[in-house]
Design a protein around this nucleic acid. Sequence first.
DNA 1: TTGGCGATTGGCT
DNA 2: GCCAATCGCCAAT
Length: 222
Amino acid sequence: MSKRCSHVRVPEAPRGPAGFVAAAGFPRILERNDLPSDTLQLARFLIGKTVVRELDEGVATGRIVETEAYGIGDEAGHAYRGMTPRNCALFLERGHAYVYLAYGTSFMLNVSSETEGIGAGVLIRAIEPMEGVAIMQRNRGVVRLQDLMRGPGRLCAALRIDRRLDGLDLCRAGPLWLGTGGRRAGPIGRSKRIGITRAADAPFRFFVRDNPFVSGPRALRG
DNA sequence: TTGGCGATTGGCT
DNA sequence: GCCAATCGCCAAT
């Protein structure tokens, strides 16, 4: 709480070297005004939207199929005990990346929510691969499509997301950004969140029903 | 300064 | 299904 947020706010995030230009103008970068201010609404809204990662070797994209909300006053949220050097990206205006290392092994990607100064965010838990499958396979060391980005740690590995992207504005052209949705996502389910102990029963998880790229036990995928 | 504890994953029984 | 790996954070000493 006492330490200040040390993020370097990059006014002009570096453009991805690939200079990604989507065919037929899809996907387009989501504008911040498109994002709901409320954390739960944002978690629901992000289902079906795209994530675009621009790397030296090319572009990797996918469709978000699973999210979890960690809203205001949420005991399970990293911002619950106030701002720290690790979690300060959660306090940025909505649409910024909060990336942290879990269990010393896996990075987690969150999208900050609410207004600046309020700590809250949405965890991206699973993504359905679209473009750049070969890149993801190389980054993950596995081939099976369903295993590339099913799980929050896996998707970060597939897209090579780490702490260097913490604090990045996802509503700007650059190495990582949020894009518009394509074809409409199927029916959206809602359940309790996965892998937490506090506030374990709150129904703050959203997912595309019966989608093979969603993580978690079978009971939480339909 | 230290020890317990994760918003997980992959390998093995 | 069970469990070790692995390490940064943070509350408590």
